[in-house]
Design a protein around this nucleic acid. Structure first.
Lengths: 297, 297
DNA sequence: CTATTTGATAACTCATAGTTATTATTTATT
DNA sequence: AATAAATAATAACTATGAGTTATCAAATAG
């Protein structure tokens, strides 16, 4: 109870902490510089803590100030989420959910999952966003995302990860390619072909898994192109820039320019996993991933 | 950024949510009832959320209101902790730590641990409190405690638990008792003796472990008294109310009125564990239990 | 049917957030 | 060295709105 510090002080403090410049911070806040200075001063007095060292044309955060910058940023974000959810609850909704997913999950996994879910829980608002693996991790850590769907094996310890789908790989060949389901026996037959693969930075663990396939086949592929979209892979394959390997769920049945051969005899599987922040207090989160884990089991 | 809701609103809201009575809440806040009513109204308008249903002489929380009560309570507590730690940082301290422990850990474990720690980290402020197992769990969950030392095997999933000391049990007998280290072979020899034991509500898992000892010895003890303090056990034993079993660390070497026989041949061990809340953001917490786990290993 | 308990409304006041004008100090620029 | 520019703090003013008192409306209890 103790303090008469208000959210205003906290917001002002964070603004100054951000660009370490009173006048510019004041501008961004649409108030005058002296007004801002006084509020900061007041916060320092109330708290009994010096927040900034003001000297020689530069302002820097004290140790306590830096600590407060980090903690209060989080706290404020938390508040906003709380208010957002309260609003949804007020409107008879159960809550909102921000979902991220790698493009390769949108082909058919995510849509099916969500359709089923929405039928049972029409009162949860979804916000869907395609993002790469690392952006998802980042946003999960900063509480800007509730659930991510990634192709990663490991995530930072603040996050929890649960595999929801293991799938085999498929070979992608130009439609006119000499190999077909019957004549294809081993990857060795493609020893000389250039390969078009997902960019390693898309997911190192995914990339390493693909490389293991080549290792097991006893050769290193000639990698001619890296991309991050399945559709560009197919375009390149179609125009004979090379051949490729993709997760089975990315198979595009409508594409008549390329053909797919499932590598079911190969032991490697790629895993689509669900990730979330264990500290996330989103009220619908628990129910939702209970559901998803139930469906995917 | 959006809202012009202030901490004042939140504090007022929580006050009303607490006793569901505007006039009484206003009194507790030392403001007038109309003032409070207006602030709550304003919060509802700003938020676009109805917080209370006011009718027939009673005020009740809406769904959204109840959600906000829970979340905002936490959030406010969080803020207070943050300010508290900032103050410590400002004074050149690294932080503060609130420790709880069951009495039976104070005999020699906790003091030694803390003395060693204080030598290396004089800049951490301690706050020590003897509490029973369940009170510690409760306070850890509500963020009123940073680390607990308990004799429990399991804790709620929000908490993490790490055993730091396993120790055998000791028999406690009056000094003049006919049994001694040499003549004692088995608990069976005390089949007819009344036992003075720790109250089961002190810790069911501790109690069950003691009961297992009797099970393994093939008899059920006659339990004559329950207490929660080792010293009262010793007093009762001294005056021939019965005999007892206690963890080895509770042995009081200065007590000449009773004698202790270590039950090292018995497989049961009692475990003193450290517990903390994984969500606790106390900045010194991590360093501290790294230290404690290091020492106790 | 009166008395009492409740929260909302209305009108007032005073504390203070935010304003403009200015100063002190340090650092570029000539 | 002298001047100009940049910065945050200080001082004095103003106007918004938090908190006040007085009152009302509704709903119960005796």
């Amino acid at each position: 109870m103790s303090y008469q510090i208000e959210l205003r002080h906290i917001k002002y403090f964070l603004a100054v902490a951000k660009d370490l410049h009173f006048r510019r911070a004041a501008e961004r806040l649409f108030i005058s510089q002296p007004g801002l200075s006084r509020q900061i001063k007041q916060m320092e007095d109330d708290l009994g803590v010096v927040l900034f060292e003001r000297h020689n044309r530069k302002v820097i955060l004290t140790k306590a100030g830096a600590y407060l910058r980090d903690e209060l940023t989080l706290n404020l974000k938390n508040l906003e989420h709380t208010f957002y959810h309260a609003k949804l609850l007020n409107n008879g909704k159960k809550g909102g959910l921000r979902l991220g997913y790698v493009g390769s999950a949108m082909q058919d996994i995510i849509p099916n999952l969500l359709l089923t879910f929405r039928k049972e829980h029409p009162d949860v608002i979804f916000n869907l966003k395609e993002m790469d693996n690392h952006k998802q991790i980042e946003d999960l850590l900063s509480y800007d995302l509730d659930i991510g769907f990634v192709r990663l094996d490991r995530v930072p310890k603040e996050l929890e990860i649960k595999p929801i789908l293991k799938e085999p790989f498929c070979l992608v060949l130009p439609y006119s390619h000499s190999l077909n389901k019957e004549s294809f026996k081993s990857l060795n037959q493609l020893k000389e072909a250039p390969f078009i693969l997902f960019d390693p930075k898309y997911s190192t663990s995914y990339f390493e898994k693909v490389m293991q396939i080549f290792d097991d086949s006893g050769f290193s592929p000639i990698v001619s192109h890296n991309t991050i979209h399945a559709s560009s892979i197919y375009k390149l394959v179609e125009h004979h820039f090379g051949v490729s390997i993709v997760p089975k769920s990315l198979v595009d049945h409508n594409n008549t320019k390329v053909k797919f051969i499932e590598l079911s005899h190969i032991k490697q599987r790629t895993t689509l996993s669900m990730v979330w922040n264990t500290q996330n207090r989103n009220p619908v989160l628990k129910g939702v991933f209970d559901f998803i884990l139930g469906v995917s089991r």
